Simulated assay, not measured.
Amino acid sequence: MELVSLDDIQAAAERIAPVTVRTPLVPMGEIWVKPESLQRVGSFKIRGAYNAAVALAGPGGVVTHSSGNHGQALAYAARRLGVPCVVVVPEGTPRVKAEAIRGHGAELVVVPPEHRISGAEKVAAERGMTMVPPYDHPFVIAGQGTIGLEIVAELPDVEVVLVPVSGGGLASGIASAVKALAPAARVIGVEPELAADARESLRAGHVVPWEPSRSFRTIADGLRANLSELTFAHLRARLDDIVTVSEDEILAAMRHLAQTARLIAEPSGATATAAYLAGRAPSGRTVAVLSGGNVDPEVFRSALG
């Protein structure tokens, strides 16, 4: 299986430059936080969604399945490109994310969690729309990898990069970029204990999917997807390790980011910081990727305690 290259990621950086923010590295104690919450759609997803939409979208428009953030990003990209967009989301998607998808002009389709992929595939077939998956595509992975380019450019001697893992597109892209530019740096994936399918998969040597009834227990709604064969291949080749964090540790990290770095993180976005605060990361000059800030107000209030 062919993996995404540094050239692919550098090409993506040029393609997405008109719509993305080059997010800074924000000092927080002894580490730096990469706040992708500052993107126009509130998460890193704009990078991969726009890169793929520009390359793939036809006049019939685009469709995807999403836990929320990718759907927002693709809806934003489709509106800029002037094509229709349909986003299929699972029941239980936070209202703040669903409303944002509609706000960008996309049609929202809500289905049971186990039907999100098949539901999107059905829409694509019936309406002649182009599928832009949230992680399972080289263009999406390359777009997410632009975060790695920026980390190494700003901190060339980075030693540890902590990255949330869900379907694996973000970790695949960042690991691909960082390993190409700073081979000695360690890229560590972070998952909730209640959605640790990627860690189980890497230890088993093959993709081990978790049923929604199992992974939907975590508060980190953006980290409930399973790896694909494509992302598994990237992580097996380029990720150094994967660690897990508890629900309480995720909430504590959200609180710490707000109080210490003045950064708002959704639960999924706080997992990398949670791994550092819980002492599960290697020592060294560390960057924690804050992947998104589209948090339900009630959840944020509960995190602040």
Rank of each mutant, 00 (worst) to 15 (best):
D8I: 09
E2A: 12
V158Q: 09
A274T: 13
V26M: 07
G173H: 12
P113H: 12
M28E: 13
T23F: 06
L56S: 06
E126Y: 01
S302T: 11
R280K: 15
G169N: 10
P133M: 05
A77R: 05
D8T: 11
N294C: 08
T286N: 02
P90I: 07
A253C: 13
G205R: 10
A77L: 07
R214V: 15
L38G: 01
G305W: 09
E99D: 14
P138V: 10
G58D: 13
S246D: 00
G189S: 10
G128Q: 03
A17E: 15
P212W: 14
R79H: 09
V87F: 08
I264L: 15
P59K: 15
L3V: 09
G292Y: 07
P84L: 11
N226C: 01
C85S: 13
V96G: 08
G103W: 10
H256P: 02
S118Y: 11
G128A: 04
E2R: 12
L181F: 04
E121Y: 14
P24F: 14
R47I: 03
D197F: 00
S43E: 03
V96R: 06
G269I: 15
I46D: 05
P35F: 10
G68F: 04
Q39G: 02
G173K: 06
G189K: 08
R217F: 05
T260D: 10
G189Q: 07
E154V: 05
V187Q: 01
E229S: 09
V88C: 14
D296W: 11
M28A: 15
E193D: 13
I101A: 02
I174Y: 02
E126W: 01
R280N: 08
V152E: 12
V123S: 04
I9R: 06
V245K: 02
G173E: 07
I174L: 07
L56G: 09
P183R: 04
D240S: 04
S172E: 05
T244D: 03
R217E: 13
A225M: 10
L227W: 00
K97L: 08
I188A: 05
P18K: 11
V140M: 00
A182G: 01
T146Y: 10
S43F: 05
A57K: 07
Y76Q: 01
L81V: 04
G68H: 05
G29F: 09
V208Y: 06
V26L: 09
V41E: 07
M129G: 03
N294T: 06
G222D: 01
I117F: 11
V158P: 04
